[in-house]
Design a protein around this nucleic acid. Sequence first.
DNA 1: AGGCTTATGCTCCTGAGTAGCACTTTGAGC
DNA 2: GCTCAAAGTGCTACTCAGGAGCATAAGCCT
Lengths: 216, 216
Amino acid sequence: MTADTASLSAPETLSLRERKKLRTRTALVDTALALFTERGFDGVTLDELCDAVEVSKRTFFRNFASKEQVASAPLEALWDGLRDDVERLSFGHAPVLEMLQEALLAALERLDDGGAWVTRVRQSRELAERTPSITAYGLQYCDRTSAAVEATLQRKLGLNPADPRPRLALDLVVASFHAALRTWTAKPGTPTHAALAAELRSVFAVLPGALTFTTA
Amino acid sequence: MTADTASLSAPETLSLRERKKLRTRTALVDTALALFTERGFDGVTLDELCDAVEVSKRTFFRNFASKEQVASAPLEALWDGLRDDVERLSFGHAPVLEMLQEALLAALERLDDGGAWVTRVRQSRELAERTPSITAYGLQYCDRTSAAVEATLQRKLGLNPADPRPRLALDLVVASFHAALRTWTAKPGTPTHAALAAELRSVFAVLPGALTFTTA
DNA sequence: AGGCTTATGCTCCTGAGTAGCACTTTGAGC
DNA sequence: GCTCAAAGTGCTACTCAGGAGCATAAGCCT
């Protein structure tokens, strides 16, 4: 479930079997991103990808649920991180929206491994921009994770399940990240982790204005 | 089997050919929703669906891009309506968010055909809840439509393309509708168009609270 | 070491979605 | 009315994503 997070933060306290599995998983992600970027998502068959990693298709589907997932893996790690944060964190009585914003920034911070993750995110994002099915998968994963986070919030904070505000706040945070991702990807030059975090903070800052701004 | 389901803008001045095409399209949507509801999305093959409607698979794929789309058709009509509204409406100086809310409510109103559409939406929604690929497709369609609406807003209002607020406002409206849809679907009894509109207004009303509410 | 668990490979299968070709229907020009 | 081009449709064959069963090998435990 959190294999993604583990694969990218790479703790060395894993058994040999688990490390091996992680190696093939990482190899699949990296090779997939490279091949998809080079020849397009539809231009690469799973057989080709598996041949390149020297792994059977069976093994591929034990690590990923679909061809789209392997291309979305980097971002899934972020949402998994957010989910784990909300599960772990103790909530005070600050506004829920701010808590979620902090949790996402913390999850993002935790994925800073010196550039490897952020490079994968950039590739994944550019692929998603020209491949609708990847976008679809990613959005569905966000949706599912958001539902899980909402349930956790309700449980930990004793909220009324009929209250739509927690989920709206969550959707707002997710929308903010997507907005940050768009502008970050559009910027030329070497993409950095810090720049992405800065974009996200910037979007968070203008968020209240999204409700009130007028044309004039 | 009577009026138009999706892809509105349908005056009664359709040519015979266009009416025929629309009839097969509607038959495909209704039959698909019925079969999927009865035996599950994965329990029905396209061949079976096409046999039931007495149409070839080739014809199916001329009307729909995927198996998921035919199950999402009712909601696509709503987003298409929102897109058309924003394209058509003249914007005053009111807050953009309120304009979008009004536009969505207007699009929803326009789809009130006495219960046929709303029944299909209910079926489509219940299918999406237990079929991830339908959810994925629907979210991707929302995303694409939102991008188009954002572009229209920028053009008509002369906004800065780097300003994330229009898209955030849009995402907020979309998230509100999804929240309304969830609670509307969860309610037992015969689903009505008016009840859905009421849910949506209700979510719009608590929207500002989503930014500020606290646990205590 | 030996048994147990788990990953992996191999092979066969279903079904979504595409493409080529031929046939029918519709709408427009004569 | 008649013809013809264009569009819709059916049929068929094909590619490829994804799943299932069975056998093997590798890692883990006592």
